[in-house]
Simulated assay, not measured.
Amino acid sequence: MRSISQRELRNDNATIMRAVESGESFVVTRRGVPVARLTPVPDTDLRVVRPAAEGVDVTALPRVRATRPTAGHLDDLRGDR
């Protein structure tokens, strides 16, 4: 596992991400101290296990009409009222 600095990760992120995609792992350091590990995601971890169901026509669903403007709902959620 190769060590890279935070600055190298920032400046060469495209190259490093391609290397991670191809299976390489990195330890990211800040001022020489390891702070993170950058490794490929296993196939079964965060990737789609199965595609979305076919044949669901969301355009056929009824439209929902708001009883008041969206800004009012947002104000309530933010606690502005």
Rank of each mutant, 00 (worst) to 15 (best):
R10C: 12
A66I: 05
Q6W: 14
T29V: 15
T15E: 13
V27N: 03
R47D: 01
V20C: 05
G32V: 13
L74G: 08
D75I: 08
R7Y: 06
V20A: 03
T70A: 11
R7C: 08
E54R: 03
R68C: 01
V49N: 00
R37H: 10
R30Q: 15
V49L: 08
E8Y: 01
R7I: 11
T29N: 15
P62V: 01
R18L: 15
A19H: 07
R63I: 02
V56P: 00
V64H: 10
A53W: 03
T70I: 11
R31W: 11
R65M: 06
L61D: 09
T15R: 15
N11D: 12
P34A: 07
T67N: 13
L38P: 00
V35L: 09
R10W: 04
I4R: 00
V58A: 04
T15K: 15
N13F: 12
M17G: 04
E54Y: 02
E54I: 02
M17R: 12
R63E: 07
S25M: 14
Q6F: 14
G32A: 12
L61E: 10
P34W: 05
S25F: 09
N13V: 09
A53C: 04
G32Q: 14
L38C: 06
T70G: 02
G23K: 10
V20F: 02
E8K: 05
A14C: 09
R31V: 06
D12N: 15
V58T: 07
Q6T: 15
